[in-house]
């Protein structure tokens, strides 16, 4: 069938054919629903009655009439601002510690990585017990230092920090990627600065961190994306409470879509979240040239 075609053309057609399952999947299950949700955002639709065109009404509701939309966005951003830096710093520190040549290195690495394997509902339930005000492990630990632990999940002040603490459970997942990055740093760079008499701090500051910066950048982007979409923990542990203090954006979106069946408004929420994540990602990419060092990159003069 393809015999009359040139090799290049035949190869191009085969390439498209091979990629077509993914392309079809992308069109049907990603791009299609995205376009549909963009159209839906202009409608009032509850799944069971005909959609009603409301134009920008849903967007107006988001920015003007609905106090919970911006509230949920604010607390999600606040959570991200607390969680992402902590993840980056602790992940890098942990990776550097576990990069040292010590006995039982593999076992220790596995132990730190293990929590990242567990996720979802089981972990949420486990942490509910840990945060229990009267019987939880955390407050028991604090009591050894004569500190009366707070009502972690039941208090508006402490509920977000609780989720941040809980998120550190998965820091081992990032650690593995940092470890891979650390092991890719050429040892001759360290040998060179050692000959120059650099201290440990200078070695980290001038060699480790710049060489690791692409990995840190990657982790930062992924951290922004995942933390803006936090859902399961809040859904299981607090259901957005107390008094909406943990009503994360995705939880609110879920409620609008699947509890109140405001599909049009939920689409607005989804698109605004997408734009927020896109904006933050682009912003980070714009700043990347100032602090991310790519070894293979040719410096333009």
């Amino acid at each position: 069938m393809l015999s009359g075609l040139t090799f290049r053309r035949r190869e191009a057609i085969l390439g498209w054919v091979m990629a077509s399952p993914w392309l079809l999947g992308f069109l049907a299950f990603t791009l299609g629903p995205m376009i549909a949700s963009l159209v839906l955002s202009l409608y009032d639709w509850d799944l069971i009655s005909p959609a009603l065109l409301v134009g920008w009404g849903n967007y107006r509701e988001f920015f003007v009439d609905d106090p919970l939309s911006l509230h949920s966005l604010r607390i999600t951003l606040f959570y991200s601002l607390m969680a992402i830096p902590l993840h980056l710093v602790l992940g890098v520190i942990l990776a550097m510690l576990l990069n040292a040549n010590i006995r039982g290195q593999s076992v220790i690495r596995t132990v730190y990585y293990l929590p990242a394997v567990l996720a979802g509902v089981a972990v949420a339930m486990l942490w509910r017990w840990i945060f229990s005000p009267d019987f939880g492990l955390l407050n028991l630990f604090l009591s050894y230092f004569n500190i009366e632990g707070p009502n972690w999940l039941g208090n508006r002040t402490w509920v977000l920090p609780s989720f941040v603490i809980m998120s550190l459970w998965g820091v081992g997942g990032g650690m593995v990627i940092y470890l891979a990055g650390l092991q890719g740093i050429p040892t001759d760079l360290y040998e060179a600065v050692e000959i120059d008499g650099a201290t440990a701090f200078r070695r980290i500051w001038h060699i480790t961190l710049p060489m690791l910066s692409p990995v840190i950048f990657f982790q930062l982007i992924m951290g922004v994306i995942s933390s803006m979409q936090i859902f399961t923990q809040a859904f299981i542990m607090t259901d957005g409470g107390p008094a909406n203090a943990s009503l994360f954006y995705m939880l609110y979106l879920y409620r609008q879509a699947f509890e109140y069946r405001n599909m049009g408004y939920a689409s607005v929420l989804a698109w605004i979240l997408f734009l927020c994540i896109l904006a933050l990602t682009l912003l980070l990419f714009r700043t990347a040239s100032a602090w991310v060092y790519y070894e293979a990159e040719t410096q333009r003069t």
Binding site: N151, R156, G240, P242, A243, E259
Partner: peptide, 16 residues
């Protein structure tokens, strides 16, 4: 359902 959730969010503060 939305009314009920709105009420509950405030009552939670009283109860906790």
């Amino acid at each position: 359902n939305e009314v009920s959730r709105t009420m509950q969010a405030e009552v939670d503060l009283l109860l906790n």
